[in-house]
Design a protein around this nucleic acid. Structure first.
Length: 359
DNA sequence: CAACCGTGGGC
DNA sequence: TGCCCAAGGTT
């Protein structure tokens, strides 16, 4: 604990922010109704690096299917990944599932009401643990997400890039200092709402901002420069070939991807290292003839950190089932079965397009 | 600690 | 269009 922890919080920031929140804050989000620890936890994990608008339909569908922690713990992982399919960062789904099982086994089927125990669970870091305790129980814990980072970097005129350790540490210190002792749940929601609606990245609405008096960036004309941008880095390009193998009933051969790396644990098209070696590898692994196939145009899928060039190789001729090698994580799926699978969004779209063309 | 992990949207 | 970013966490 730092010395600042014993000081009174600086409420010259929190007081006008809370007053603004009463009139303009968001209070109707799905996870704000029926505010259980389970629903708050689920929403906080879904909202990691993901915008509110995107999360809402996924949240509704997820809690309808798996309404409580024990139900989630007992669900098969395939079901959890299917409900997550399209949302991205799939380790969140696997960690969510694991954490539910740990809570059932070790915490009486509840989320622990304790920062240390929460942070020790898979997928729950410092900020998510703080948000759960603040939103569920009103306990005083500071959060630090993208919104809070932007608001505090501007208000205090912090020039450093938030990714740097020193800047990060300073932001946490300021976040704790501004957090009031009363109305903590409202305050954490208020500072996020401020960042999401007024103190936005480009063209912030400073005329309507309740904490504009005292904002260093506004005073110094730096709102467009803060927070400092991440240093640019060249994105690598990776190439791969995915095989679209279909049998006489127009079912597609799918494989579960390994538990680490891109699209971990999801069902996807079988993958080969390179198009040149595809022929030999096909013969080895699937016992099909590559000259039955038709190569499609290469397309590029862009991830956050690299471009993935995918050259799908479509084998249109019928492939007898008994000529495909047996494997536990390999199976044929018809068009109607795809919905129940955890599929990467680009693969889901590609298969949908192919199935529509057949009709 | 820096790289990694997805997808959709804004400009 | 290409690039940056979004209610971060893990390795």
């Amino acid at each position: 604990m730092t010395a600042q922890g014993s000081f009174a919080p600086d409420e010259t920031f929190a007081a006008p922010l809370l007053a603004w929140y009463d009139d303009h804050g968001r209070k109707d989000l799905p996870w704000q109704r029926d505010r259980s620890a389970y629903r708050v936890w689920l929403s906080e994990v879904m909202l990691q690096q993901t915008q509110v608008r995107t999360v809402i339909p996924y949240f509704e569908r997820f809690v309808a299917a798996l309404p409580d922690l024990r139900t989630l713990a007992e669900a098969p992982q395939d079901r959890v990944l299917a409900l997550w399919s399209g949302l991205g960062y799939y380790s969140r789904a696997r960690n969510l599932h694991r954490t539910a099982q740990i809570c059932v086994a070790e915490h009486g089927a509840e989320l622990p009401r304790d920062v240390e125990a929460l942070s020790a669970l898979p997928g729950i870091g410092r900020s998510t643990a703080a948000a759960i305790l603040a939103q569920t129980w009103g306990e005083r814990h500071a959060i630090l997400d993208g919104n809070v980072r932007r608001v505090l970097a501007r208000w205090h005129g912090l020039r450093g890039w938030p990714g740097e350790t020193a800047t990060q540490r300073e932001l946490w210190r300021l976040a704790e200092r501004h957090t009031p002792h009363e109305r903590v749940a409202d305050y954490t929601q208020a500072i996020m709402d401020l960042g999401a609606t007024l103190c936005v990245r480009s063209r912030p609405h400073c005329l309507r901002c309740p904490v504009a008096p005292g904002c260093v960036a506004l005073r110094d004309g730096l709102t467009a420069q803060l927070p400092a941008r991440k240093p640019t880095r060249e994105k690598p390009t990776r190439a791969t070939t995915m095989l679209i193998v279909r049998d006489a009933q127009r079912r597609t051969l799918l494989e579960r991807r390994p538990p680490t790396g891109v699209w971990a644990g999801l069902w996807s098209l079988p993958e080969t290292d390179d198009a040149a070696g595809a022929s030999r590898r096909l013969l080895d692994r699937y016992a099909v003839r590559v000259d039955d196939g038709v190569a499609l145009a290469r397309f590029v899928h862009t991830f956050s950190h690299y471009h993935l060039e995918i050259a799908p190789l479509l084998l249109e001729r019928a492939v007898p089932l008994d000529r495909v090698a047996d494997a536990p994580d390999r199976a044929w799926y018809g068009p109607d079965e795809l919905e129940s699978l955890g599929l990467p969004a680009p693969v889901r779209k590609l298969l949908q397009t192919l199935n529509e063309e057949v009709r």
